[in-house]
Simulated scan of single mutants.
Amino acid sequence: MTDGPVDDAAVLDALFAGSPQGLFLLDGDRKVTRYNPSARGVRALPAEAVLGHYVEDFAPDLGTHEIGRLIDEVLTTGEPLRDRLVRGRSPSEPNRTLAVRVSLFPLRSGPGLVGVVEDVTERQAAADRLAVLSTVHRTVGATLDVQATADALVAALVPAFTDAAAVDLLDDDPAGAAPPSGPLPTS
Score class of each variant (00 low, 15 high):
Thr2Leu: 10
Asp3Ile: 01
Gly4Arg: 04
Pro5Tyr: 09
Val6Pro: 12
Asp8Glu: 11
Ala9Gly: 13
Ala10Asp: 12
Val11Asp: 07
Leu12Arg: 14
Ala14Tyr: 02
Phe16Met: 07
Ala17Thr: 15
Pro20Lys: 07
Pro20Asn: 09
Gly22Gln: 04
Leu23Arg: 04
Leu26Gln: 10
Leu26Gly: 05
Leu26His: 07
Asp29Phe: 01
Arg30Asp: 14
Pro37Cys: 07
Arg40Gly: 07
Arg40Glu: 12
Gly41Asp: 06
Gly41Thr: 05
Val42Trp: 02
Ala47Val: 05
Ala47Lys: 09
Glu48Ile: 00
Ala49Asn: 13
His53Trp: 02
Asp57His: 14
Asp61Gly: 04
Leu62Gln: 03
Gly68Pro: 07
Gly68Glu: 02
Arg69Ile: 00
Arg69Leu: 11
Leu70Ser: 08
Leu70Glu: 09
Thr76Tyr: 03
Gly78Ala: 03
Asp83Cys: 12
Pro91Val: 05
Pro94Cys: 02
Arg96Phe: 15
Arg96Ala: 15
Thr97Tyr: 02
Leu98Thr: 06
Ala99Arg: 05
Arg101Trp: 09
Leu104Met: 10
Leu107Lys: 05
Leu107His: 06
Ser109Thr: 15
Gly110Val: 10
Gly110Ile: 09
Pro111Arg: 15
Leu113Gln: 04
Leu113Thr: 10
Gly115Lys: 00
Glu118Tyr: 01
Thr121Lys: 00
Glu122Gln: 11
Arg123Ile: 12
Ala126Lys: 10
Val132Ser: 03
Val132Cys: 05
Val136Gly: 00
His137Ser: 11
Thr149Arg: 03
Ala150Asp: 05
Val154Pro: 01
Ala155Pro: 03
Ala155Ile: 06
Ala155Glu: 12
Ala155Gln: 08
Ala156Trp: 00
Leu157Met: 14
Leu157Gly: 08
Val158Trp: 04
Pro159His: 02
Ala160Cys: 07
Phe161Tyr: 15
Phe161Trp: 14
Thr162Val: 11
Ala164Cys: 10
Ala165Val: 05
Val167Leu: 04
Leu170Asn: 01
Asp171Thr: 09
Pro174Gly: 05
Pro174Asp: 09
Pro179Leu: 06
Pro183Thr: 12
Leu184Asn: 04
Leu184Thr: 08
Thr186Gln: 13
Ser187His: 12
Ser187Trp: 14
